[in-house]
Nucleic acid binder design. Structure first.
Lengths: 107, 107
DNA sequence: TTATAATATTATTATTTTATAATATGTCAA
DNA sequence: TTGACATATTATAAAATAATAATATTATAA
C-alpha cells in the first residue's frame, strides 16, 4: 500500500540488471540453494542438474554482478549469497507463486 | 524467515518467465506506471520516453504473457495490470532498492 | 610424478532480445 | 473523403544470452 512507485524508475537500470540474473530457471535454483547456506560448485551442479561448465559460468557471472561471493579452500570453491536483497525478492516470489491458495497453518 | 525455498524450484520456469519481463528498465517503468492505474499507450510512451513502436511491442508481449490487459475505447487502448502478483514484487524492490537506509518515520 | 577431482576458461553455435524504422490499421473530425 | 491521431504490426540489424563441448588450471592423493 501507499507505494511511491515513481521511486522504482530511478533505480530501474540497477534493478533490472539484478532481475535479469534472477530470471533464469537454473540461476533461480542456484540462488535458492545458496540462500540455505554456502555450497560448493559440485553440490550446486548436482542440485540444479546442469553441466559443471554451465553452472560455473553462471556463478562467475553472478559473482561479477555482486550477487554472490566465493571463498576458496584448497580444491573447493564455496559460493554464498552476497547481496541479501535478493533474499527478500525470493521470499515474495515464494509467497506469491508457490502458495497460490493461502491456508491457515496446516498445508 | 523459515522459507522453504525448495518450493521455488518447482515453479522456477514460470517465475523466471515473469521475472524476465520485469527485467528491463523500460518494462519495469511501464509496470510501475500501470501500477498506479490504467494508462493509454500515448501516456505510457510519454512517461517512459521510448518510441511508440517499442512500447507497443512491449505491451503486446506483456499482454501475451498475462501480465497486463487491454481495454479498447474508440481510438484509445487502456492498459492495466492483470497479474497482481507483480505488484508485490515491485513493492519489495521498492523497499530493498529504493530505500537503502531505513529511517524512522521522517525521511 | 602421475592420475584424478574440482573448478574455471575459452570457443562456438543457436536462440532470444533489443532497438529502430517503416508501414499498416482503425477512428474520429473537419 | 481527407487528414491527423492512436495504436499495432512487420521487418530487420545488432547485441546479448543460452547451451554445449573442449580444454586449462590447480590441488590433492596415490
Amino acid at each position: 500500500m501507499n507505494m511511491t512507485k515513481t521511486e522504482i524508475e530511478k533505480h530501474a537500470p540497477e534493478v533490472s540488471r539484478t532481475l535479469k540474473l534472477l530470471a533464469h530457471p537454473i540461476r533461480l535454483k542456484l540462488l535458492c540453494a545458496l540462500s540455505m547456506g554456502e555450497k560448493t560448485v559440485t553440490e550446486l551442479v548436482q542440485y540444479v542438474e546442469a553441466s559443471q561448465s554451465w553452472v560455473s559460468q553462471f556463478l562467475t557471472r553472478m559473482r561479477l554482478e555482486g550477487l554472490v561471493d566465493v571463498r576458496r579452500d584448497s580444491k573447493f570453491a564455496y559460493y554464498r549469497i552476497r547481496d541479501v536483497r535478493i533474499l527478500s525478492i525470493m521470499e515474495v516470489i515464494q509467497t506469491q507463486y508457490c502458495k497460490p491458495t493461502r491456508r491457515k497453518n496446516h498445508d
